[in-house]
Measured scan of single mutants.
Amino acid sequence: HNLTITQGKLFFHYNPKLCLSEIHKMEEVSGTKGRQERNDIALKTNGDQASCENELLKFSYIRTSFDKILLRWEPYWPPDFRDLLGFMLFYKEAPYQNVTEFDGQDACGSNSWTVVDIDPPLRSNDPKSQNHPGWLMRGLKPWTQYAIFVKTLVTFSDERRTYGAKSDIIYVQTDATNPSVPLDPISVSNSSSQIILKWKPPSDPNGNITHYLVFWERQAEDSELFELDYCLKGLKLPSRTWSPPFESEDSQKHNQSEYEDSAGECCSCPKTDSQILKELEESSFRKTFEDYLHNVVFVPRKTSSGTGAEDPRPSRKRRSLGDVGNVTVAVPTVAAFPNTSSTSVPTSPEEHRPFEKVVNKESLVISGLRHFTGYRIELQACNQDTPEERCSVAAYVSARTMPEAKADDIVGPVTHEIFENNVVHLMWQEPKEPNGLIVLYEVSYRRYGDEELHLCVSRKHFALERGCRLRGLSPGNYSVRIRATSLAGNGSWTEPTYFYVTDYLDVPSNIA
C-alpha cells in the first residue's frame, strides 16, 4: 500500500525493539523526510534493546553428524571492536523451508527459537588472519532439518551509529543413524509349514526405512522333555500350542467401542483428552525405555581390526524358502538304536541362519518350516543398504507352526516275539517326523474274553527296548493296539495285532 503524509511529521519514542533503520525507511515511504526535528525521533529510546544489523554474515563451514552440527561463519568486528559482546545463534526444527525470524513471537518477546549466546573469538592483530567464530550444536535429532541463523550482539553506541551483522536463515539436516526397533511384532501360524509375521514401523526411523531383515531359527525343545518319565503317576503330560491366527481386521481397528449394538453396526467412541494424553505418555515412556535398553543392555560386537582377528559373527547367506525346513542338525536320541526319531534339535552355532529381506511392506510369510516346531524370529529395521547396512537392534518374537495331521501315527506293522515265561516283546517304529517329539506310547492289549488293559511306555523305555515287553501273560489269544502321544496330543491307534500265548508248562520236552 502507498502511504503519503502531505502535512505533519513523524514522532517515535520509547520503541526499544524498533531499529532506527526501520524508522528511516518509514520517513522515505511516507514522504516526511526532512520535516522531523532532532528530538522527534529519539536516538536513545528507539532500538536500544534490539540488534540492528546492516551487514550480512556468511557461514564459512558446515559439518553434520547424526546428532551434531558444527558451524563456522566469517569474522565480524565493528569499528570499535570492544562493542562486540558476542553472537546469538538461533535454531529450531523446520520440516519445511518457510521459516521466518519472527515465527511464534508474542507480545512478551518470546519466540519459538532456541538461542545460544556465543563469546567472540580472540581478536588477531592481523586483519587478514582473524579467527572464524563458530559453535557445535549438540543433542539434535537424527535425520531432522533445522533452520539456523546467527547475528551479532553489540553494545549501545553513544554516537548512535547503527552497526551489526546478521546471516540469512539456512537449512541444515542432520545425518541418518540406526533406527529404533520395529514396533509390535506379531507372529502367527496359518499352516503346519508357515508363519505369518506382521509389525509396525519404528517410532524413530532416523532416516528413510529402506528394508527390513527377518531372521528365523528353529528352537530346540526343553531338555526336561527328553529326561522326564511322563508315565509316572502324578506327572502331567506336557503340551505345546501353536500360535493362533490373526483376529479379523475389524476387531483390530483402534479407537473402536468394545460393545456392539445388537441391531447392527455401531460407531466408534472418540477417545477423551485424558485417554489420548495417557497414550502419549505411555508411548514416550516406551521410547525412553527402549533407548535405555539399547544403550545399557546391548553391547556392540567388536569388529575385526587390522591384526587379522576374525569377526566372530557368522556370515549372512541367503537361502531359498524351500530350504528352511531342514535348518537344524538332527541327532538321534540314543545312538545305539537307529530307529528312534531325530527330534532332539541342538543347533550348531556355526550354522548360517536363513533370512529374508523385506522391502516396502511390514509383513512376511515364512514358508518351508517344520510342522509343530518353535521358531525364534528376529526382526531388524534398516535405513541404508549400501555401502553397508545400517540397521536397528533386533526385536524378537516366537511362534510355533501348526501340527501336521497323521504325523504322530505309527507307520509300519507292530511285530512281536514270544519268549519263555510268557513274555512277549512288542516292537514298532517311532514316527519319523512327529509333531514336536514323542513323549510316550500307549499300549492297549486284551486277552479274548477279558477286559482291555493299558500300559504306558516312556520315551526312554522305548529307546532301550525298541518297544516294550509284556510279562506274566496268561495263555490265550491276544490283540494289541499302540498309539503315540506327542507334544500336540495323541496320534491314531494302530491296526490290531494278534498273537497267541501258550502255557509254557505244557511245552513238550526233548528229553527222552
Rank of each mutant, 00 (worst) to 15 (best):
S203W: 05
N206S: 05
G207M: 08
I209M: 10
I209S: 07
T210K: 15
H211K: 11
V214E: 00
F215G: 14
F215Y: 11
F215W: 01
W216G: 05
W216M: 15
R218A: 07
Q219W: 15
E221N: 04
E221A: 01
E221P: 07
E221L: 09
D222W: 14
D222L: 09
E224H: 15
F226Q: 06
F226W: 04
F226D: 04
E227Y: 05
E227V: 09
E227C: 10
L228I: 13
Y230K: 14
C231P: 04
L232R: 13
K233P: 15
K236C: 07
L237V: 06
P238Y: 07
S239D: 09
T241R: 09
W242L: 10
S243Q: 09
S243L: 10
P244F: 08
P244L: 11
P244H: 12
P245I: 14
P245G: 11
E247T: 08
E247M: 10
E247R: 13
D250T: 10
S251G: 12
H254L: 12
Q256I: 13
Q256A: 14
S257K: 06
E258L: 14
Y259K: 12
D261L: 09
A263P: 08
G264F: 04
G264Q: 03
C269E: 08
C269M: 02
K271L: 12
Q275H: 12
I276W: 07
L277C: 01
E279A: 06
E279P: 08
E281V: 11
E282W: 15
S283L: 12
S284N: 10
F285K: 08
K287I: 07
F289L: 08
F289Y: 07
D291Y: 12
D291V: 08
H294R: 14
V296E: 10
V296W: 07
V297D: 08
F298E: 08
F298V: 07
P300S: 07
P300R: 13
R301S: 09
R301F: 02
K302W: 15
S304G: 09
S304M: 15
S304F: 15
S305Q: 11
G306T: 11
G306Y: 10
T307E: 14
G308C: 14
P312H: 11
P312V: 15
R313K: 15
S315P: 10
S315H: 09
R316E: 10
R318H: 08
S320F: 10
L321P: 10
L321T: 13
V324P: 10
G325P: 06
V327F: 07
V327T: 08
T328Y: 15
V331L: 10
V331M: 08
P332I: 11
P332N: 03
A335G: 07
A336L: 12
F337V: 09
F337D: 08
N339C: 08
S341N: 14
S341Y: 04
S341I: 05
T343Q: 07
V345K: 07
P346L: 11
T347Y: 12
P349R: 14
E350V: 12
E351S: 14
E351Y: 13
H352I: 04
H352R: 08
R353A: 04
F355M: 12
E356P: 07
K357Q: 04
K357G: 05
V359P: 08
V359Y: 11
V359N: 08
N360Q: 08
N360Y: 07
K361W: 06
E362V: 13
E362P: 06
E362W: 13
S363E: 07
S363V: 14
S363W: 09
I366K: 03
I366D: 00
I366Q: 01
S367T: 07
L369P: 01
L369W: 01
R370K: 14
T373P: 00
T373A: 05
Y375W: 01
R376D: 15
A381Y: 04
N383K: 03
Q384S: 12
Q384K: 01
D385P: 05
E388M: 09
E388N: 13
E389L: 10
E389H: 10
E389F: 11
R390E: 03
C391N: 01
S392E: 11
A394T: 12
Y396A: 06
V397I: 01
R400V: 10
R400Q: 04
R400M: 07
T401A: 03
M402P: 09
E404R: 07
E404G: 11
E404H: 12
E404M: 12
A405E: 11
A405L: 08
K406E: 14
K406V: 12
K406I: 13
D408A: 02
D408F: 00
P413M: 09
V414P: 06
V414A: 04
V414K: 02
T415A: 10
E417A: 14
F419M: 01
F419T: 15
N421F: 04
N421E: 14
N422K: 14
N422S: 14
N422L: 08
V423H: 09
V424K: 01
V424Q: 02
H425R: 10
L426S: 02
M427R: 09
Q429K: 11
E430R: 04
P431Y: 03
P434W: 01
N435Y: 00
N435S: 04
L437N: 08
V439G: 08
V443C: 02
S444Q: 13
Y445M: 10
G449P: 09
G449T: 11
D450H: 13
E452Q: 10
L453M: 10
H454S: 02
H454F: 00
L455Y: 11
L455H: 11
V457R: 06
K460N: 15
H461E: 05
H461L: 09
F462V: 06
E465T: 11
R466P: 05
R466Q: 06
G467Q: 05
G467W: 02
C468R: 03
C468K: 08
L470V: 13
R471V: 15
G472R: 05
G472Y: 07
P475Q: 11
P475C: 06
N477E: 04
N477R: 09
Y478I: 01
S479Y: 03
S479P: 00
V480W: 05
I482V: 15
R483K: 11
T485L: 12
T485G: 01
S486L: 01
S486P: 00
A488N: 13
A488V: 10
G489L: 05
N490S: 11
S492F: 11
W493E: 02
W493Y: 15
T494W: 01
T497P: 00
Y500C: 13
Y500I: 08
Y500S: 09
V501D: 03
V501W: 02
Y504M: 04
L505E: 11
L505N: 09
D506R: 14
V507Q: 14
V507L: 02
P508S: 04
